[in-house]
Design a protein around this nucleic acid. Structure first.
Lengths: 190, 190
DNA sequence: TGTTGCATGTAAGGGGTTACATGATTGA
DNA sequence: TCAATCATGTAACCCCTTACATGCAACA
């Protein structure tokens, strides 16, 4: 139940609606956590039932009320507990690395193009992230550990360094595959 | 249904039992894909029903037969198709980065220790991976694109570079948090 | 008039983890 | 005798994605 912690983390900054939370989990936050609105709305209701949240209702644009959720004391305590608790790292699932693992079963030149594409995509995303970084660094709040921008900056840098490593690896793999593709298959010995 | 592709990738090297596959998905392969036996056995049965696999049965140690699965022609074709198909990268979920994001809601010095621990753990795992790397590099097959060791090497290097970037980031975060912890909270202005 | 944004909800189904269940052989 | 390794299977439950469903306001 880590979605719960993600929502506590986001609501720790300020009260928000499910709609806002959904959009934040598609923006920069999506670099390390994602969720659909269909998951978020029921979870917010469950968290309120558990006493972690309360909401203010206002007439909404559609047929239903607009609900702005805020942390309760218990919610804030739960957030602090989670931040202090040990983190178990569960292994990421990366389909592209899996393909690299099975490289000997595929066509080297086709796969090389594949990895080049992925590297290219990675570079494009890095440019976007560099823009975000510049924005944050222009604001001195990103060095103040009591401001949310501090955490934003830390996690953005994770995104940038991870993306950098990923892109570099893709290029390296592509090179190895291209070398393999130019010398005829099975060209070593047999 | 990517578990299916992972199993195709592993069986592409040689025929194996569900038990062997389970253990490989806990060793080096776990760096980029994992699965439990409770997931694997039914999937192998489903793949056989779909004509991708066949099995040889032998008397097993327990009450049931031991089944060694091998790719059929269709299985091998499916593996090649997958390798040539575009990969959609789905965002990884990283709880530690989420905690960094929420850093302003926590105690800097407690969190700093947390990130130091994680960096330490990362370094220990890197040592293990370096051992694996040395083993592979001692075997010249790791440069031959027709040998499974070629793919093993590619994916192992992904694990190493990713782990390196992760550990470095953890250390960097810890430093920032330690600086914050030494100067009294809210020490900028107000 | 048609699309985008705001705003909330439910349902179906796939994927994954944890736990239950069985039983022989080997080594401490 | 007790634990670990080999070996396969099922059941319950949680998490997540995709799709269905509603309806107002603003803008092109």
């Amino acid at each position: 139940m880590t979605l719960r912690h993600a929502l506590l983390a986001l609501l720790g900054e300020r009260p928000q609606t499910g709609y806002e939370l959904t959009h934040r989990l598609r923006g920069t936050v999506s670099l390390f956590w994602t969720a659909q609105h269909s998951q978020i709305y029921p979870e917010l209701a469950a968290m309120e039932a558990d006493g972690l949240l309360t909401h203010d209702a206002a007439p909404g644009p559609g047929p239903r009320e607009k609900k702005t959720y805020a942390l309760t004391g218990a919610g804030r305590a739960s957030l602090r507990d989670w931040l202090a608790s040990p983190t178990r790292r569960r292994p990421p699932k990366d389909e592209l690395t899996l393909k690299a693992y099975a490289a000997s079963s595929g066509d080297p030149s086709v796969m090389a193009r594949h990895f080049r594409d992925q590297a290219e995509q990675s570079r494009r995303q890095l440019e976007e992230l560099a823009g975000e970084r510049a924005k944050l660094e222009a604001n001195p709040a990103h060095t103040d550990p009591t401001q949310p921008q501090f955490g934003w900056y830390l996690s953005l840098m994770r995104g940038i360094t991870a993306q950098q490593a990923y892109g570099d690896w893709c290029d390296w793999v592509a090179e190895r595959l291209e070398q393999a593709g130019s010398t005829p298959a099975g060209g070593s010995r047999r």
